[in-house]
Amino acid sequence: MEGNQKQLPEVWMRGPIEGVPTLLQPVAHALLQVQEDVEKYTKGLQNTSIWQRPANVASIAFHLQHIVGVLDRMFTYASDLSLSNDQLYYLQKEGVYDQTVTLNVLRSNLDHQLQISLEKLKEVDINTLTHIRYLGRKRIPTSLISLLFHAAEHAQRHLRQLLVTAIVLRQEKDNMYYSK
């Protein structure tokens, strides 16, 4: 804790997210936890480090881009739609170095995509959760609930990987990637 700030309990312990169906509260909670944890774990990180790949692991920039992309893609499939050319282009660009992409841009993109995802969760008819949806070009059959759960789980998975990369960067001998 910094200063007089009280540490809040994890998002899921704070109660329901208004407008999100009860059965989808775990998805909403997981997504909001990603948002808070990204802010927490990237605090003080300098833009020069977001593309670093210590021990050849994926960069923080990749993880942030990938979370955005996965949410966009999974919610597209959940809407029973195919990916657009723009979405396929974004997928190809995830993790490709771009010096103009800053941490603030990445966080802003994540916040925007999380808001879109939460709004889409609010629109889900819970009577359709077991309806078939198709994943990818191969149109792998799955269910709506599976796509929504996977979106949240996959975002959490990449958050954990981002955390490990951030820890390694913090431990760099000279701490040149973080401001003091």
Rank of each mutant, 00 (worst) to 15 (best):
M13G: 02
R14C: 07
G15S: 14
I17E: 15
E18M: 04
G19I: 08
P21Y: 11
P21W: 11
T22W: 01
L23E: 15
P26C: 12
P26M: 11
A28S: 14
H29A: 13
H29C: 07
L31F: 09
L31Y: 07
Q35N: 14
Q35L: 09
E36D: 13
K40G: 00
Y41S: 04
K43A: 13
L45H: 09
L45S: 04
Q46A: 13
Q46P: 05
T48P: 00
I50M: 06
Q52T: 10
Q52I: 07
R53H: 04
R53Q: 15
V57F: 15
S59I: 11
I60F: 10
A61S: 12
F62Q: 07
H63Q: 14
L64A: 09
Q65A: 10
H66M: 09
H66Y: 13
H66Q: 05
D72S: 05
M74A: 01
F75I: 04
T76Q: 00
Y77R: 01
Y77N: 01
S79H: 06
D80P: 00
L81S: 08
S82I: 01
N85T: 14
L88H: 03
Y89C: 00
Y89E: 14
E94M: 04
Y97F: 14
D98Q: 13
Q99C: 02
T100F: 08
V101W: 05
N104S: 13
V105M: 14
V105E: 11
N109E: 15
D111V: 02
Q113S: 05
Q113T: 10
Q113D: 04
Q113F: 03
Q115A: 10
S117Q: 05
L118P: 06
L121Q: 06
K122H: 03
K122C: 02
D125H: 00
D125G: 03
I126V: 15
I126S: 06
I132C: 12
G136E: 05
P141M: 08
P141T: 05
T142S: 13
S143P: 02
S143M: 08
I145W: 00
S146N: 11
L147W: 00
L147F: 02
A152D: 09
E153Y: 04
H154S: 04
A155M: 07
A155K: 04
A155P: 04
H158E: 11
H158F: 10
